[in-house]
Simulated scan of single mutants.
Amino acid sequence: MDVKICGLGTEQTVDVAIASGASHVGFVFYPLSPRHVGPSHAGQLAKRAKDQRIKVVAVTVDAGDGMLDAIIEAISPDMLQLHGKEEPWRIDEIKDRYGLPVMKAISLEGADDLAMIDEYADVADRLLFDAKAPKGSALPGGNGVSFDWSILRDVKGDWFLSGGLSPENVGAALEVCNPGGLDVSSALESAPGVKDPDRIRAFFAAIREAEAA
């Protein structure tokens, strides 16, 4: 199973995520987020991951071509994650422009929201299912809230599960649905935007425990 630790911002936490078993590391390029990193700093962090053959994901929110150009030049990501309101035509446009795989985040609350899958399944290389942002939140993701994972039980394909995952509940999530990947961010922090190495290690320990069970 793929595991992406998202919103990393220091060399130490990148190294801990890799040593713990991350397949992907995500860097957030969204100024409203406490996890936002500039392209130059992200480039230094991305190199540490690439040296270990770990996939680098650039996470953006309704980014224009100018911003994407700067991100790609700085970190040469393996994948772009679009976490805003990007429509299918925009995904096609981005894939044509950059030649990179795209993962599209879809915000879910109930089973009715699954209808959005059909809109994106044929254009995005992977889908990521996240919880809808709480009212008043400026962030489309990384809010530390989850949703009813059981609505994904019959969803086919190779998708990531996100939204409120933590060392305490990831085992339950894996019992309920069968994701191809897990994406985690805020639950591994000691403060907004500050990843806790011990929480990162605990998350992977919980995954191993769930898989063994």
Rank of each mutant, 00 (worst) to 15 (best):
V3S: 08
V3P: 02
L8V: 13
L8Q: 08
E11F: 10
Q12H: 15
V14I: 14
D15I: 15
D15H: 12
V16S: 02
V16E: 09
A17F: 06
A17H: 09
G21V: 02
G21W: 03
S23P: 06
H24F: 15
G26I: 13
G26L: 12
F29T: 03
F29S: 01
Y30Q: 00
Y30R: 01
S33C: 08
P34S: 09
V37P: 01
A42E: 01
G43M: 02
A46L: 10
K47A: 06
R48C: 01
R48A: 04
K50R: 15
K50T: 11
D51W: 06
R53Q: 13
R53I: 02
V57D: 06
A58Q: 01
A58S: 14
V59A: 07
V59T: 01
V61A: 08
A63I: 04
D65L: 08
L68Q: 10
D69G: 11
I71K: 04
A74F: 11
I75Q: 12
I75C: 07
P77W: 09
M79C: 15
Q81R: 06
Q81D: 14
Q81V: 08
Q81P: 14
G84R: 01
K85D: 14
P88M: 00
W89Y: 13
D92Y: 00
D92S: 13
E93S: 12
R97V: 05
Y98E: 04
M103P: 10
A105R: 02
I106M: 11
G110M: 04
G110S: 15
A111T: 14
L114A: 10
L114M: 10
M116R: 15
I117A: 04
I117P: 05
Y120W: 02
A121W: 08
D122N: 15
A124P: 00
D125K: 05
L127A: 09
L127E: 02
L127K: 13
A131Q: 06
A133D: 04
A133I: 09
A133T: 04
K135L: 13
K135Y: 02
K135Q: 14
G142C: 13
N143Q: 14
G144S: 01
V145Y: 05
V145M: 05
L152G: 12
R153F: 03
R153I: 03
D154R: 14
V155K: 13
K156P: 00
G157K: 11
G157D: 08
D158V: 06
F160V: 03
S162G: 06
G164R: 07
L165N: 04
L165H: 03
S166G: 13
P167K: 06
P167H: 06
E168G: 07
N169M: 05
N169V: 06
N169P: 09
N169H: 05
N169D: 07
L174D: 09
C177Q: 04
C177D: 05
C177G: 13
C177Y: 08
N178T: 14
L182S: 12
D183A: 11
D183M: 07
S185Q: 03
S186M: 05
A187E: 10
A187H: 13
A187L: 07
L188E: 07
A191D: 14
P192C: 06
G193V: 08
G193L: 05
D196K: 10
P197G: 05
R199S: 12
I200H: 03
F204M: 12
I207R: 09
A210Q: 11
A212N: 15
A212C: 12
A212W: 03
A213W: 11
